[in-house]
Each structure stands twice: as C-alpha cells, then as structure tokens.
C-alpha cells in the first residue's frame, strides 16, 4: 500500500500578516514557512502506520503544488520520515486550481490512501482534499479523527454533525483529516535531516488549469476595544455587565 500526503506550505502560525501598499496581496517577506499543521498530523499518522505495518505500507510520498521556494518544506517532510516527494511546479491559485494540479500529478499513480489536512492555515479553504477526490473520482471521508489499516480495509472515525461515526472503506480513497488523527507531530531527527537531502524529489510540470476565484483585496480585522477589568471580589459586577451592557445572558 502506498500513502500520499498532500502538504500545504504555509506561514508559521505566529506570523504577523503584512500587506502590499495597495492591500491587494500579502507581503511574505521574512516569513518562516512550515508544513500546514493538519498536514503535519496526517504525515505523522502515515509514518506511524508504516512503522506499525511495515509489510503493508510500502511507501509514503508527499506532494505539494507550488514554486521552488516550497521545497524546504517538502524536505522537512522527508526528514520526518516520508520516502519521496513530488512538487507540481505551479504558482499559487485558488483551491480548484491547486486540486487540479495535484490531480494531474496523481492520476494513474498507484496511491492507495491519500491524506489531506482538513484546512490550510493560510486561506482556511477546507476544499483541496474533497476536490482532489472528486477529480480522481475516488471515495472520500472528511473530518477523519482516527485511521487504521487492516489488510485492504481502511477503518476511520469521522466527525459528523452532532457525533461521530466509525466507517469502513477501501482503497483508493482520499481521507481529509483533523485533530485526533495524531497528537504530537513528528519532529525530524538529525539522521532524518541528513537522509532527507538525498531522498528523491520529483518536479512535475503544471497542468493547464483555470482558477474559479481570485483574491480582490485584504483588510486588517477590526481592533478590539480595551478589556474592562473587574474586581475578583465583585463578581456580581461581571454578571450585571454581561446582563445589561453586553446583553449576552
């Protein structure tokens, strides 16, 4: 069984967002890039599964659609334990554009389980995984919080509206994963970093694709007004303010 993990290259979660002067684009100068947190958990689970079932899981591949500047992030994924990497040489676009690029590189390749994070921490689209599944005409399960492999069967837990479900499905399948799939992300070891340098990283040319949406501009979110401090000896004051001033209880 071969596992593919889709990786989004995103600014570190503590990044302060800066903009171009016309507010039409984000200024990425000085930004630290990381593996999207959910993708990092997906990769972690893939590595755990390969360790637990060495006879069953043959290979873990990571893929991203992006420019050459995304390669350090792919190398980090290789250092964590992925076996090889694919970069689709496509500049940024919307979710439809990105999913089309990934599908183009994946179509016909022998991947059995494709893992995507449920969201990318930059544009918070929650879209690429589901789109990729549809473009490949594979089954998909979203909001997956646990994943196990038993022979050819893929066993997952998914969150549903108001609860959760245990689901069984079979390869090929796209799983869109969230918190719980793994707890602590794998951190590259020294040895991992060394071997990552020589692991294969294939660059695939972009497919012809047109996006379905485009960014018009950005705004900084509105500033919060100052916090009203309340004396811990006077909790009634808090209750009173929430009731009469904020009117939320």
């Amino acid at each position: 069984m071969n596992i593919l993990v889709c990786i989004s290259n995103v600014p570190d979660t503590t990044t302060r967002i800066k903009y171009s002067a016309d507010m039409k684009s984000v200024d990425y100068s000085g930004v630290q890039w990381i593996i999207n947190p959910w993708d990092e958990l997906a990769l972690t689970r893939a590595i755990e599964l390969k360790e637990a079932h060495p006879a069953l899981v043959q290979k873990i591949t990571v893929i991203t659609a992006g420019g050459a500047d995304a390669e350090p992030t792919l190398r980090k994924a290789l250092a964590c334990g992925a076996d090889d990497a694919i970069r689709v040489d496509a500049p940024g676009g919307d979710s439809l554009f990105t999913a089309t690029q990934l599908a183009h590189a994946v179509k016909g390749e022998p991947f059995d389980v494709i893992l995507c994070g449920i969201e990318s921490s930059d544009y918070n689209g929650s879209a690429v995984g589901g789109m990729l599944a549809e473009l490949l005409d594979y089954n998909s399960v979203s909001a997956v919080s646990s994943l196990n492999l038993e022979g050819n069967s893929v066993k997952v837990t998914r969150e549903i509206d108001g609860g959760k479900q245990s689901i069984e499905t079979s390869a090929p399948v796209v799983l869109i994963v969230q918190k719980g799939i793994a707890i602590n992300p794998r951190i590259p070891s020294m040895r991992g970093i060394m071997t990552a340098r020589t692991k294969p990283l294939k660059v695939v040319a972009a497919a012809a694709a047109s996006p379905g949406s485009k960014v018009v501009g950005y705004q900084a979110p509105p500033q919060k007004s100052a916090c009203k401090m309340i004396d811990p000896e006077n909790i009634d004051e808090l209750v009173h303010l929430l009731h009469t001033e904020a009117r939320v209880i």
Binding site: D94, A99, S140
Partner: peptide
C-alpha cells in the same frame, strides 16, 4: 463538518469556483 465534506466535491462536479 458536512459542508466541508460536500461543497468541494459539488464545486468540481459543477465546474464551479468555491469560496468557503
């Protein structure tokens, strides 16, 4: 959770742009 699971697939089927 449901909309996140379905909207992307629906968008592809309709050849539609999606903003979530």
């Amino acid at each position: 959770v449901t909309g996140k699971a379905l909207a992307p697939r629906v968008a592809v089927r309709l050849n539609a742009g999606l903003v979530s």
